[in-house]
Nucleic acid binder design. Structure first.
Lengths: 106, 106
DNA sequence: CAGTTGATCAACCACTAAGTTGATTATAGA
DNA sequence: TCTATAATCAACTTAGTGGTTGATCAACTG
């Protein structure tokens, strides 16, 4: 996979398990064990998912004794939103262009 | 990879080549050859990328003789935007909650 | 210190993804 | 009909992902 920040973010969000983890973190900080609890998979697997989310900047991890509390970070979400708006914006201008030319682009 | 629609969309967007293709399509329809032209890779590879984008609903393909003109579709972009807003919305309410409780959550 | 708990590291396996080349299909045009 | 062009299909290679288990590290607790 490419390692630019948009690719990392989109790729991190492309997994349902990771999206569930983020949904949980939107309710507040949680430890690895707490995050792993709802899933069938092993703790190690969840730990790997967290590493992916962390690399994408979607979470940060603190330290509290032997716990590593995770928290959601929204900066990458803002970045994908800017990407989307840029793309849709260009497309909208095209749409307008075609309309001005009187073409039927439907 | 999971085959739910959010996963398909995020996964499709996680590749820089595919994002370049979408950027090109935001300027207007294009054929496979036209889309492949800027890239070093083979035509077949680009054709595969288009299949991924099509499966995610990010493009549709028409037919014009032997050409298969591609066009951008924005519905999946709207879906990821709704996802983002939902997630950030929940997070914002948490933020508010913590503020009401007088906690320092920074 | 010994034991327990939280979490990560390491090695491995099965599957998928992204690229290649070569063959094939479909249409246009001489 | 024969050839050229647009695109896809098929088979294969390589590398990466998501999961497993077992070992290890780090910190609290008796």
């Amino acid at each position: 996979m490419a390692d630019d920040s948009l690719s990392l973010t989109f790729s991190a969000l492309a997994d349902p398990t990771r999206r569930e983890i983020l949904a949980r973190l939107a309710q507040g900080e949680a430890t690895v064990n707490e995050l792993a609890e709802p899933f069938e998979m092993s703790l190690q697997a969840v730990s790997k998912h967290l590493k992916v989310l962390e690399r994408a900047g979607l979470i940060t991890r603190g330290r509290d004794a032997q716990w590593r509390p995770c928290r959601l970070e929204t900066a990458p979400l803002e970045e994908i939103d800017r990407y989307r708006r840029r793309l849709e914006g260009r497309f909208a201008r095209l749409d307008e262009e075609l309309r001005r030319m009187g073409k039927n682009h439907e």
